[in-house]
């Protein structure tokens, strides 16, 4: 545990504190600019990971029909052996395609310690208590000239960056969490794959809403500096993802935004394909259900839902083409 603490302190906290302080020293003794520069720097540093994530996502997307086939094959087999067989077949498929099923989580996993570290770094570099100030001394590298600039000026655009967002002036105290939540939603939307079945779709929908809402609510109690970091990080992340991902359009509330004519057409076609597949699937399920009296009401409802969604999607696609 002590070893982990040492790694956390020396490997993440100290470099972060010193980078922020150094940027403050060279960026006109302005902590807001230092946060902005740091955010852009971290995001640029993570571009290789973003590219990797995007590639993995694309590969996962192409594997979806084959994954679905495996799932269908084992749908009614609940014994341990069938589950093992399903799992090994899925893994073989991933291996064959050179995909790590949790590989696309990489940037997220790497981002989490950066977020937490940044959160702590902001609080530690703008101490409001005597012990906080005294502790900061041990965090500076001896060569860092910014040590003599302490205490750092905390004002940026009239905001005290060490204050919680709730203490920032109206209406920014409400606008900032909303912007953070919205930008997080767009980021999640851009980095999620299209799920083939109903269950995955519903899980995805929950995650897509839950995370941004949660982060937005938390932001209200975060230091304003961290709120600005998350917002900026999301915006830069969206831009990078947009260009790295080949200018894919972003679908928000049924409408497509940005993207090139080509990528928009591809997105519409993909959506149509999916809708057709879902319709075919639901029809075949319906046929099965007439043969099998034991089919549950739950499945019928799901089938009806799939058909309705598929019809709606086809209608929307047709309208867009016209």
């Amino acid at each position: 545990m002590e070893f982990l603490g040492l790694i956390w302190d020396q490997g993440i906290m100290r470099p972060m504190i010193n980078s922020l302080a150094l940027l403050y020293h060279y960026l006109f003794l302005n902590y807001g600019l230092s946060i902005i520069a740091f955010t852009v720097f971290v995001r640029l540093l993570m571009i290789p990971l973003t590219i990797r994530q995007t590639n993995q996502m694309k590969k996962l997307q192409t594997l979806q029909p084959r994954m679905k086939a495996i799932q269908d094959k084992y749908r009614d087999k609940k014994d341990a052996e069938s589950r093992r067989a399903q799992s090994s077949e899925s893994m073989a498929l991933y291996r064959e395609a050179g995909v790590n099923p949790i590989g696309c989580l990489g940037p997220m996993v790497i981002q989490m310690p950066i977020w937490i570290g940044f959160y702590r770094a902001i609080i530690r570099t703008m101490p409001t208590t005597p012990e906080g100030m005294a502790n900061l001394s041990a965090s500076f590298y001896a060569w860092n000239p910014a040590g003599a600039d302490v205490p750092f000026s905390r004002l940026f655009l009239g905001i005290d960056l060490a204050d919680t967002v709730s203490q920032v002036y109206l209406p920014l105290n409400f606008v900032l969490p909303v912007l953070v939540g919205a930008s997080m939603f767009i980021t999640t939307k851009m980095t999620s794959t299209v799920a083939m079945d109903e269950r995955q779709q519903s899980q995805q929908r929950i995650m897509m809403w839950m995370m941004p809402v949660m982060i937005g609510v938390f932001t209200y109690q975060f230091p304003a500096g961290l709120g600005i970091y998350i917002l900026l990080s999301n915006i830069v992340g969206v831009l990078i993802q947009y260009f790295v991902g080949g200018k894919q359009p972003i679908e928000l509330f049924g409408k497509l935004y940005l993207g090139t004519a080509e990528t928009r057409a591809q997105a519409i076609a993909a959506k149509e394909d999916l809708a057709i597949k879902q319709l075919a699937e639901s029809e075949s399920e319906e046929e099965e259900s007439t043969d099998d009296d034991s089919t549950s009401v739950h499945r019928q409802e799901r089938t009806r839902g799939n058909r309705r969604r598929a019809r709606n999607s086809r209608r929307r696609a047709r309208r867009r083409r016209h």
């Binding site: 937490i116 959160y119 702590r120 609080i123 530690r124 101490p127 409001t128 208590t129 005597p130 012990e131 906080g132 109690q221 230091p223």
Partner: peptide, 13 residues
């Protein structure tokens, strides 16, 4: 955990 750590940093001891 994050919030507790944060409060420790903001509250004078």
């Amino acid at each position: 955990i994050s919030l507790t750590a944060c409060l420790n940093d903001l509250t004078p001891q």
